[in-house]
Amino acid sequence: MPIKKPILMFRVGYMLQYDGIADIKGGGSHIEKHGEGGEMWNFRPESGRCYGYVMTRHFSGIDLSRIDGSKSWHVNEELEGVNIVFFAKKPEGGQKVIGWYKNATVFHKKYRKRRGLKTYGDWEKLDYLCEVDAENAVLLDESDRTFEVPYAPVHGKGYPGHSNVWYGDAKEPRSQEFLKNLGNYIDQYSKAAGKPNGAGKSGSRSSQYDKELIASIEKAAISTTWDYYEGLGYKLTSVEKDNRGWDLEALKDAELLLLEVKGHIGSVVQFELTPNEYIQMQSNAFSYRVCMVRACLSMPELTILFPKKIGQDWMLETADLKVRVQLSEKIAAKASEVI
């Protein structure tokens, strides 16, 4: 399916793989000075997702009102279904498309944080401003990086210019023609590669594997949390099947803690609270804990998060405030035909 608006184009430094620290060329003054940049991890999957970075002016992030002006956007709100095309200046010259994300989620004027993997020699904290299912992230082989991206100061107004972010909203006819050609190029590449959207999601074997993986993650997260609190002298009880809005209860003398456990195979903070869990968190904020366990199936790392209300909003944070997680309320609806 041809790529459609909304579309973003990100100029990044030039690399071969974008899966961790390696040789990188171009990409702006920061890379020229330090020889590294946040885009170095743009195409390394983690727990089935890829996390995208581009250097924006004053670290201001992406302005979603440039993509969807139908509403007022608040910092850290999300917009889904955005197509992102990455391009870079090749060492031998010329700006070329190096890959893309289809149907990505982009955050308004906000970079989020994730931890690097120490075994890979990553940075301790990695910034990202968009994310996508790994199956919708395409990194071109070097020999396939042939689609040229015109440079506005040389080729004229209506093309990507000095900024590392181009919103594709220029009105010039040449701009619209460029976007059309870009869409056709990506469409033809997808057909030639035999990778239709959604490939790999169906099939009983895949579904069974997903269920087994999720069960393993949940089991490891519960075990890690249980062992931690038991080591502190608490008596643990599982209430996972009781639909109370938390998974475990930890009792020590007169103190009763309500523990909601969230497990991850990777290091990114990526979880949701069900409506019941969210209500119980607010009602029992003093005793409620969200126990986030990262790297469940390798080297489990437990982070204890405490609820905190700030104005009308809720956050989760560690006791030392080193980790702070913003909670964003979402409203869902199910459609059904009526007579």
Rank of each mutant, 00 (worst) to 15 (best):
P6V: 01
M15Y: 04
D19R: 15
K25D: 08
I31W: 03
E36S: 14
G38I: 05
N42R: 11
P45I: 07
T56C: 04
T56L: 06
R66N: 03
I67E: 02
D68P: 02
S72A: 07
E77P: 02
V82Y: 01
V85K: 05
E92S: 14
I98K: 12
H108Y: 01
G116K: 14
G121H: 10
W123Q: 13
E124P: 02
E135F: 13
A137Q: 12
H162E: 10
N164M: 01
W166I: 05
L179T: 12
I186K: 08
A192C: 02
K195M: 10
K195I: 11
S207G: 01
Q208W: 05
T224H: 13
T225A: 01
W226K: 13
G231W: 08
Y234C: 03
E240D: 08
K241R: 13
W246D: 01
D247V: 07
D247G: 09
L251N: 12
K252N: 02
I265E: 15
E272A: 10
N276T: 12
I279T: 05
M281G: 00
Q282Y: 06
A285Q: 15
R289L: 07
F306D: 01
K309N: 11
A319D: 11
L321V: 08
V323K: 14
R324P: 02
A333D: 04
